[in-house]
Amino acid sequence: MSTELELERPAQPPSFQGISTGRKAKNLAATVMVSLCFVVAVIPLVWVLWTVASRGMESLLRADWWSHSLSGVRANEDLGGAYHAIYGTIAQGLVTAVIAVPIGILVGIYLVEYGAGTRFARVTTFTVDILTGVPSIVAALFVYSVWISIFGFSRSAFANCLALLLLMIPMVVRSTEEMLRVVPNELREASYALGIPKWKTIVKVVIPTALSGIVTGVMLGVARIMGETAPALILMAYSARINMDIFEGSMANLPLLMVKEFTNPEAAGFNRTWGAALTLILIIMLFNLAATLVSRLSAVKTK
């Protein structure tokens, strides 16, 4: 029907309606800026990691670093190691996790399985959000005023754990909540249909399904609190020797070791500070890696 029309058509105009050079330039500029932003963030990351790795490597290569404390070692001697602080970091991290995990998981269960939609659940969610934002130094002061001032306990690694607890609970709640929410409802209903009571359904069906996700969250949480320094400054005293008892006496951890040694002007102090930094990063990486691994492995399983 339009054949004549086509024959009448004059020589071809450009087929596509162009867009102005200005718009193209703006688009290009935006692309460049946005990519630059990413680069700007990568620079400090690489710079920090490089600094820590290059400065800390020397200490880590000494066998003593992993097996000895700094007990009896003078400030200028490149001897001894961080064994006491490594022990402290891991012990405090684990003790904190052992207390925080059941509480956090229970809160998460409450929020998803029992409280969903109620007013109190909303208050709890809000509180968890606020708790997430409480600065570690404030958590430390709180533990100080209750545990040390009022109850009269002395400073100890355990007091530090109590402050870390406040920081870790919201992380566990969050990851539990998130994982429980993705457990399909059919699973719960199938279990109810078999006449299994709610609590048993949660323990036997819901939690196992969400477990790997929760474990991943917990590992990430532990990795996070192991780098915390502020509570340790207030709630415990540094010891250069090995102390296995988290309830009694002074004890070290890697951040405290760094705080202690960065003022040591000797080369040995420099090595210890950065050695501890590198060790701390490695431990955190290890936990992060394990967390990723757990979530990977279980992701394969659910497929």
Binding site: Q12, S15, F16, Q17, G18, I19
Partner: peptide, 20 residues
């Protein structure tokens, strides 16, 4: 082809295609 011009031709900007 849009009036004979290939919208997948080399150097054709998809933005201009969608504009058209």
């Amino acid at each position: 082809l849009l009036d004979g011009a290939d919208i997948y031709g080399a150097g054709v900007d998809p933005v201009e295609v969608r504009r058209t």
